[in-house]
Amino acid sequence: MRRIVLSAGDIDRALTRIAHEILEANKGPEGLVLLGIPRRGYPLAVRLAAKLAAADPAVDPERIVGQLDITMFRDDLARQPTRPPARTVLPAGGIDDRVVVLVDDVLFSGRTIRAALDAIVDLGRPRSVRLAVLVDRGHRELPIRADHVGKNLPTSRAEKVRVRLAEVDAGAGFAEDLVAIESLPAQEEAR
């Protein structure tokens, strides 16, 4: 069963709000770097950068966005099928002494963010690291919290949160963005 919880419009408004929160918390765009976590964190970072630029003409969106691959830093590598790593691309200025905002679609156990923090250490020394997510669905397994959240979604562990973004999922038939909650069939949940 699938229940849509955020429409394309909801997602856009949430990102607009997060962009403003980021500027407010940072007291302007000075030193900001947005690092998206593949796959869906990166397009979200790109969208946020555009919104920052819209809010503050001093921002060049091309120069503040990067992609941070965390595959090699996962703590469950040996338990999963092999994942080919994705690319890590930093903005031209690097991340030393910058304010890095990690961007991801869903915050769940916190393990992905833990891996991302390790990955950042090997790339440089930011002044501070913040976290922005589109959805926080709870069930944390590590002491990690998000600084900016699009929507808090109470879920059960058996449910799945599906984020579909046009940049990534258009090929699979999702021309429109959405966030949905899928519950497993009852018998499967009971197992």
Binding site: M72, L77, A78, R79, Q80, P81, T82, R83, P84, P85, V106, F108, S109, T112, K160, R162
Partner: peptide, 24 residues
């Protein structure tokens, strides 16, 4: 070495990879 060793317990399985990714 990465491709051979990073997956120790499970065989190559695209469906499993996809399911895990969606659950994250």
């Amino acid at each position: 070495l990465y491709l051979l060793l990073s997956s120790g317990l499970y065989a190559q399985d695209a469906t499993a990879a996809h399911a895990k990714e969606s659950a994250s």
